[in-house]
Write a protein that binds this DNA or RNA. Structure first.
Length: 195
DNA sequence: GTACAGATTGAG
DNA sequence: TCAATCTGTACT
């Protein structure tokens, strides 16, 4: 059973969406080919109270406006001048909340190639490069787009398989927010980003 | 206008 | 351990 995730899936509490995205498939159509990967690691950013969120205190800039869209839209931006970060907006319009996709497990894959493919998608910057994502996807609607969407292929991740840990690279937000366990990944999965 | 640092990565 | 290199923000 394969079905595309609808608006309803994304318009729910951000922490639930972040956990439920584990085991779903991110699908990208590129030059008539399908690139897909199972989502194995996510992080939740919950503005306006979350100090690590770009929408802290409802801050709005040209770059982060997509974070305020209703759940199911792409919020993609450049960090460190070279890497794209793929986020998906959540909840209702006007709230700066989103889920960062941190790692995928590529679908293609012969078993003996696993170690080689690992470095393709085991990090937020790498998976965007792998899926050929860039600014042209800014604000794309995942429930309607013909070139990127998310599918439920019937895989169910048990609660006992989900690990919750502090988010990565946000020490600037202070101990309180940096220690929140809003990073989720599938226990034991090889493609989860390192650290 | 200038200075600075960030939701990262890979090389040394 | 550090450089690569773009963008928003906080200054001058």
């Amino acid at each position: 059973m394969i079905k595309r995730l609808t608006r309803k899936f994304f318009v729910r509490p951000t922490l639930e969406v972040a956990k439920d995205l584990l085991g779903k498939f991110l699908v990208r159509k590129y030059k008539n080919k399908i690139l897909a990967g199972k989502i194995v690691e996510t992080e939740a950013y919950i503005g306006p109270q979350d100090k690590a969120s770009h929408g802290y205190k409802m801050k709005r800039t040209k770059r982060n406006r997509a974070e305020y869209l209703i759940g199911g839209h792409v919020y993609i931006y450049l960090v460190y001048g070279m890497y794209w970060q793929l986020n998906i907006s959540t909840e209702k319009r006007g709230l700066p909340r989103c889920v960062l996709i941190r790692a995928l497990e590529p679908v293609i894959i012969e078993e003996n190639q696993k170690s080689k493919n690992k470095k393709l998608t085991s990090g937020p910057g790498k998976l965007c490069r792998y899926l050929k994502l860039d600014k042209s996807f800014y604000g794309e609607d995942l429930t309607k787009s013909k070139r990127i969407w998310i599918e439920d292929r019937g895989i169910k991740i048990k609660k006992s398989e989900i690990v919750a840990r502090p988010r990565i690279g946000i020490d600037y937000a202070g101990k309180y927010w940096a220690n929140k366990k809003w990073r989720f990944y599938i226990k034991g999965n090889l493609f989860v980003s390192k650290k």
